[in-house]
Simulated scan of single mutants.
Amino acid sequence: MLSQNFIDEVKAAVDIVKLAQRHTELKKVGDGIWQGQCPHPHHNDGTPSFTVWEKSQSWACMGCHSGKKNSKHKNYGSDCFAFLQWMEGIGWKQAILKLAKEVGIEPEQDQHAEVYDHKRRLAISYHRNMPPQVYQYLQSRGLDRHDLDDWSIGFDGLRITFPLFDRYRKVLGFSKRKFIETDESAPKYKNSSNSNVFNKSCYLYGTHLVTDDCDEIRITEGAMDVIVPKKYGVQNIVATLGTSFTEHHVALIKNMNKIPVFCMDGDPAGLKSIKKSVDMLAEAGVYSKVLLLPDGKDMTDIANEYKELTEDYIQDHAITYAQLMIQEVITQYDSKVNEIKLRLFPTVKQVLQSIKNGDERKVMQDYVYEKMGLKL
C-alpha cells in the first residue's frame, strides 16, 4: 500500500509538461498553457486538441475528452499518473512506481507488513478448516470449490469468513456470517473493527476486481451479492457490507470515474438509503442509476436465477435515479386519481342513468370516458 505522502511527493517531483512532451510536440499558447496534437494512438488528431496546464499540473484532450473533468467518456483523471496510465495502459500503482523510479524517489517500506501477513495467515487457516456442512450450505447458495478458493472463504468455528481484500489483494480484515447459533441477539454479519489498515466507512468489498472494461460500478449490500454475480460474469460489482454510505465512499467512486448503479431493495428503508447515497454523489457531480430488486430477492438470488444473463438483467433493468423518482410520483398520482374515481363513480353512474335521452346518454358516457377514464 502506498501512503498519500509518498504519492504526493512523486507527483510534486514530476513536470507534466516534460512528461507529455515525450509523446507529442507542445507549443506554449498562454501563461503556463501548452497545446499540441493528442498523443494517444487511438485518437487521430488533426488539430491541436491536447492541452497541458503547467500551473495545475493537469491535462486534457478536448477532442477525445480524456482527462476532461465531468466527462461522460471513460478516463483515468488528469494528473501525471493518469497520463501514464492513459498512454501506456498500466495500472495506477504501476504508474506511481514507474514515475517514482524516474525521479529517484525510493518506495517507502510498508509499516503494516506484519499486520497484513498475520491476517493473510488467518485467512489461509480459516479457508483450510471448513467443515462439510458449511461447504454444503455455500453450495446451496450457488458457490463451488473454485469460488471458495478465489475468494478465500473459510470458517472460524462459529462463522463463515470472507477476507476483506484491498485493491492489491492484501487482507485488511474479515466479514463474518453467523453459521452456528450461540446468541440470538448477535448480528447475522460482523465486520472487522476499524484499525490502522481497515476503515469500514471507506471500504467496498470487491474493489480488487474492478477494471476499466466497464463504465459502471454496481453497488450492492453483502459479500455473497458480489461473489455469485461475479461468478456469472457481472463486471465491477462491489458491496458496502451493510455499512452506511459515506463521503469516503463518494470520493472512492468519484476517483474511479464510473457510473454508480445501486442494486438494492426497493422497500421504504432501501429507497431511503438509496436516496441518501444518490444525493451525496450528486453533490459531488456524480450521477447514479438504480436497479430495484424484486421483493424478497437479493443480488445472490438474481444471479442464481439468471446465471450468465445476470449482466444483461442489470443493463435492462437499471434506470436513472431521476426516472425512478418520476415513476414514484406517477404511482402516487395514479393512486390518488383512482381513489377519486372510486369515490365519484356512484355519482357519475347515477347522473348518466338519469339521462332519459339515449343519444345524449351515449354522448355523455363517451365524454366521461374521455375525461375520467370511466366506462359505464
Rank of each mutant, 00 (worst) to 15 (best):
I330D: 13
I319K: 08
Q327R: 11
L342H: 06
I355E: 01
D359A: 03
E360V: 07
N357T: 10
T320W: 13
Y313R: 02
P346A: 04
L352H: 00
K349S: 06
F345K: 11
L344Q: 15
K349M: 04
A318N: 00
E311Q: 06
V348H: 02
Q327M: 10
N357W: 09
E360Q: 07
D334C: 11
D334M: 08
K336M: 03
I319P: 00
Q332L: 11
I355F: 10
D316N: 14
L324M: 12
N357A: 08
L324C: 04
R343L: 09
D316A: 11
F345I: 08
Q327T: 14
V351W: 00
V337R: 04
I340Y: 05
Q332N: 14
T310G: 00
Q327I: 09
L342W: 03
M325E: 15
N357L: 05
K341M: 01
T310R: 05
Q327E: 10
T310N: 08
E328V: 02
I326Y: 13
I330W: 04
I326V: 10
E311G: 02
P346Y: 01
E360F: 07
T310Q: 00
L352T: 00
Q323G: 08
S354K: 13
I330C: 01
E311S: 00
D334V: 03
A318Y: 02
I314T: 05
R343D: 07
T331E: 15
S335A: 13
T331M: 12
T310L: 02
I340K: 03
N338G: 01
T310H: 03
I319N: 01
E339L: 00
Q332G: 08
I326T: 11
L352G: 00
K349W: 04
I319F: 07
K356Y: 05
E311N: 06
K336G: 04
D334W: 02
M325G: 03
D316F: 13
I355W: 07
D316G: 14
Q350P: 02
E339S: 13
Q327L: 06
F345D: 12
K356F: 10
E360D: 10
Q350W: 06
I319A: 02
V351I: 15
I330M: 12
D334Q: 12
I314D: 05
T347M: 09
Q350V: 05
Q323S: 15
Q323T: 15
A318R: 08
V329C: 11
I330G: 06
